[in-house]
Amino acid sequence: MSRPTGLEVRSLTVTYGSGPKAVTPLHDLDLDVPRGQFLCVLGPSGQGKSTLLRCLAGLLAPTAGTITALGEPVTGPSATRGMVFQQDAIPGWLRVADNVALGPRNRRLPESQWRPRVDHFVEAVGLRGRERAWPRELSGGMRKRVAVAAVFANDPDILLMDEPFASLDHLTRQGLHRTLLTLWQETGKTIVFVTHDVDEALALADRVVVIAGGGVRADAVVPFPRPRTDDLRMDATANALRTNLLHHLGV
């Protein structure tokens, strides 16, 4: 039996506005994401990457087309599809541990069922000892760690990440890449990670798709073994792939 499909996107079209001012960032887009895959979505700014992710999350209704997640049609947001946003989206009025527990606690399960998970992911993202801190007391990178821990602690099947580390410096970003990959390998979640940075995509993904002009322009497997190091920059195959992807991005 083949691996069951994580996400199935068929003829997805999104149009903003109407009349002569109408904009169509996504037109008749098809995409399949197998379960457990780490997919990076590349694309130039304003070409529909975030729109696609918002549709997958159920935050934006497509103008036409269907989305199926694990065999179920997507009709709205759900705890099975967690999302990490580009902006700071974690509530500032919840301490770190309460932020990570926000989703599980909402399901009104007994604390004994979710507390170990919350503790585990707080520890896994390196926030042990900062459980009682307010978000304002943390750096931007640490707030992103809270968001990552919170979405893993909520145990979704699919993780949607919208340029989550775009505003961070290089070193902080690399640290978060390591953390994310460790958690992905530990949990086997399906991840759709949107970025405009080719090197970030090559460092993280099993597979990269380039979205431009409303549809999928390129679809490539990233064959390198993990852990991937900065040596990848010297690798001839990697350079060829990078050049190819950059070409499709119009660079």
Binding site: G17, G58, L59, A61, G76
Partner: peptide
């Protein structure tokens, strides 16, 4: 402004 109906958070 987005005119599409927003699922869930509207």
């Amino acid at each position: 402004m987005i005119t599409n109906k927003v699922w869930g958070v509207r």
